[in-house]
Amino acid sequence: MSENPNNWPLWEVFIQSKRGLDHKHVGSLHAADAQMAIENARDVYTRRQEGQSIWVVPAVAISASQPDDAAMLFDPADDKTYRHPTFYQMPEGAKFI
């Protein structure tokens, strides 16, 4: 790919819609630097009061798991139901547990 060095790099944008909630991925945009990325994210992704905090991350800085590894990574958790509270049988009449 012959990328023109004058093109602004890609940033991934995460918005926290309300205090107390997670920052959630909402999309991406282009900006020359981090400050501009935050400002652009404000204009692009919070025009309708969608946010109260913004994170931006250069898209190249994100590492992602491979779909081919999904079975290896995630299936082993399937049979470990003892990690969930419903796995356990509580005696009749016990309260607050």
């Binding site: 060095p5 004058n6 093109n7 602004w8 020359a32 630097d33 501009m36």
Partner: peptide
């Protein structure tokens, strides 16, 4: 404009 922003960054 795009070039200037990159140069400054």
């Amino acid at each position: 404009v795009r070039e200037a922003a990159m140069a400054y960054a």
